[in-house]
Design a protein around this nucleic acid. Structure first.
Length: 376
DNA sequence: TCTGGGGTCCTAGGACCC
DNA sequence: TCTGGGGTCCTAGGACCC
């Protein structure tokens, strides 16, 4: 802690801890819903995702029994089957999950007016003005868990801490059906024994770099001088260093304001190789339709159009083009996509594995502009 | 060995302007 | 022949998350 006094960077910009945040993550959400709907699946190693017939695709969610075999989300179905040949697979009903998710979020709303949905199975609640201390926050979490189980027969893991990232980390340390509370002065002590990968944003690549520098746990990182953390691990390294040393890395203002959407995209993998460029054209048209409709629904104009193309050897390219002004027209997207596609036209259609279209540089249309766009 | 889809954020290089 | 420096925007790629 004494080190912090030598660092003007910290003393000037430090955010103080003045919040109590609860993070809720549903346990193996998709798999749990499937088991709830069909109790004969209970206790089995189960994965949701992929195609049970072709055995293609990836694991979306898996039951805790499947996790014991080393299976995890994102893993290819074929690899999951190698790890557990008697694995049970279900395709999944994403409409149902989304309905259940809405119900869960409605339950959460009763516990705090300030809430941030972070996915269909997770959310943050700001309890700062709802409870007077951590003891009360914990009691509230117990009630919430009971409430959720009573109405939806689902369990969740909860973390309570003075900011969002710490609340999330807390919830990760006791799954499933856990409840972990960490108070401001206990943060560094709590994080020290945990693996550095517990921190959101530290994935495979960063983990490798940390390991090469003998940083395995959060405590290992906390021990090194901050200058070294910056030198070796860059900006994120410095931010992580602050986190593991118990500083608040989150701005307490606007901590729950929802962020604007930055891009809208759709991408599709051809499970049957495209016969000719006509197949490709059909897919592109359908993606353009989806994303432009979404943009219209949200009253969004866009300026940048991106094409993504992946070949059978997994070589992936993105090409983008920005227009001089914001538009909302299928025709213009199509023209740009065709232009961007030109570069790849010497390839055979069957060499293409995936195609994606993205619009970004989004701009909310005001009512005035809406009337204007109708003329064009 | 096999690798979905919808996102966000970061980095790095190049063009361009003053 | 020698060519600064800061800022901004655009583009491509990649890490990461759920």
């Amino acid at each position: 802690m004494a080190l912090a006094n030598q660092i003007p960077y910290f003393s000037e910009k430090e955010h103080t801890f003045d919040s109590i945040i609860l993070y809720m993550d549903l346990d193996a959400f998709f798999a749990s819903v499937e088991i709830r709907e069909n109790p004969t699946l209970a206790g089995l190693p189960l994965v949701v995702g992929g195609d049970p017939n072709t055995k293609q695709g990836v694991v979306s969610t898996c039951s805790y029994e499947a996790r014991e075999f080393g299976i995890h989300s994102g893993m290819s179905i074929s690899q999951a089957l190698r790890l557990c040949p008697h694995l049970t697979m279900v395709r999944g009903s994403f409409r149902l999950y989304s309905e259940v998710s809405k119900k869960i979020m409605n339950i959460l709303k009763h516990y705090s007016p300030t809430m941030k949905v972070a996915g269909n199975d997770e959310a943050y609640l700001d309890l700062t003005d709802v409870v007077s201390d951590y003891k009360e926050a914990k009691q509230l979490a117990i009630e919430l868990k009971d409430d959720m189980y009573a109405s939806e027969k689902l369990t969740c893991s909860i973390g309570i801490a003075p900011n969002k990232i710490l609340a999330k980390i807390c919830s990760e340390t006791d799954k499933p059906n856990g409840l972990v509370v960490v108070k401001p002065l206990k943060i560094a002590e709590f994080l020290a024994p945990l693996k550095i990968t517990i921190i959101p944003g530290i994935g495979k690549k960063s983990c490798k770099i940390f390991h090469e520098n003998n940083v395995i746990t959060c405590g290992d990182l906390a021990m090194i001088p901050y200058q070294l953390a910056y030198q070796k691990f860059g900006k994120t390294g410095l931010k992580t260093w602050k986190l593991v040393n118990g500083y608040n890395t989150e701005n307490t203002e606007n901590k729950f304001t929802s962020k604007e959407v930055k891009s809208i995209s759709e991408e599709r993998t051809f499970f049957n190789r495209p016969k000719d460029w006509k197949d490709i054209d059909i897919l592109i048209d359908s993606s353009i339709e989806t994303i432009v409709t979404k943009a219209k629904k949200n009253n969004m104009n866009f300026r940048t159009i991106t094409l993504k193309i992946r070949f059978q050897d997994f070589e992936t390219y993105t090409r983008s083009h920005s227009l001089s002004c914001h538009v909302i027209s299928r025709k213009q997207v199509k023209e740009v996509v065709n232009m961007l596609l030109e570069e790849f036209k010497d390839k055979k259609s069957y060499q293409i594995r995936l195609l994606g279209v993205k619009i970004s540089n989004l701009l909310k249309i005001t009512d005035n502009q809406k009337t204007l766009t109708q003329f064009f």
